[in-house]
Design a binder for these strands. Sequence first.
DNA 1: CAGTCGTGGAA
DNA 2: TTTCCAAGACT
Length: 296
Amino acid sequence: MPRSDTADLSAALNPWFAHAARPLPWRAAEVSPWAVLVSEFMLQQTQVARVVPRWEAWIARWPTAAALAAEPPAEAVRAWDRLGYPRRALWLHRAAVEVVERHGGEVPSALDDLLALQGVGPYTARAVAAFAFGMRHPVVDTNTRRVIARATLGQAEPGPPSAARDIATMSALLPESDAAARVFNAAAMELGATVCTARSPRCDVCPIATACAWRGAGHPSYAGPRRAVQSRFAGSDRQVRGLVMRELRAAHRPVPRDELDAVWSDAAQLARALAGLVDDGLAVAGDDGALALPDA
DNA sequence: CAGTCGTGGAA
DNA sequence: TTTCCAAGACT
């Protein structure tokens, strides 16, 4: 069925992407589905500039899922270094094992198979299917959500994320052909990341400015429900976990409990952090209370 | 559904 | 300096 005029954003967005797209390494033609999967794991809640060097090193060391799966998860967590959310490193390792065990070492292209992998959710599954395999799926990340909110809804910010609703919305905007859909998915993300940014959108250089409902309405401020405010990091359990993980990565042996006690003065909070890390599988406790990265 | 989970760049 | 928020997923 035909789409409305406002839905035809691809006419302006796709040509823009052809010349404005950043030359990100995982967009190169010869990049494998595995390398794309690795990039998507790293890009979850993490800026492109911080991911690029980690991704280069990771792919050089583990060019296939089998190569990563053959090593202990501790090596993955260590190589993840300070990208943040180290559970992603653990999950990427598990996903590599699952790819080897279920799919003969080849990253699957089917959405259901991708979604079944550890650490792969609605965004990552569609991103891999679309960008690594050229399949026509709506891909919605935080950038795309903001672009849609502004261009088609006329709002400064998208409402609270809802995977089902976001996917349906993007599906209605997606061009018919596989090739155009693939470019449109990437272009919407790129526009949100480089032009239609959260803080200071550059409408003066936006390729869809004349079609943008938000701009047309005079950039009204957002009045809808705000997304929950992220709790303060300083003094949080997350900070303590981060400090502990830094010790575990640096030590290529179990770290005695008395050394861990030195990283945080609040004993109760430290104990909570350690228990959480063990529960997540990021740390393994020995009989003497020493902690180490997981070997298996 | 709301909370939780790292780290650092940019305004 | 402080605050926002970033190619999300899991519980």
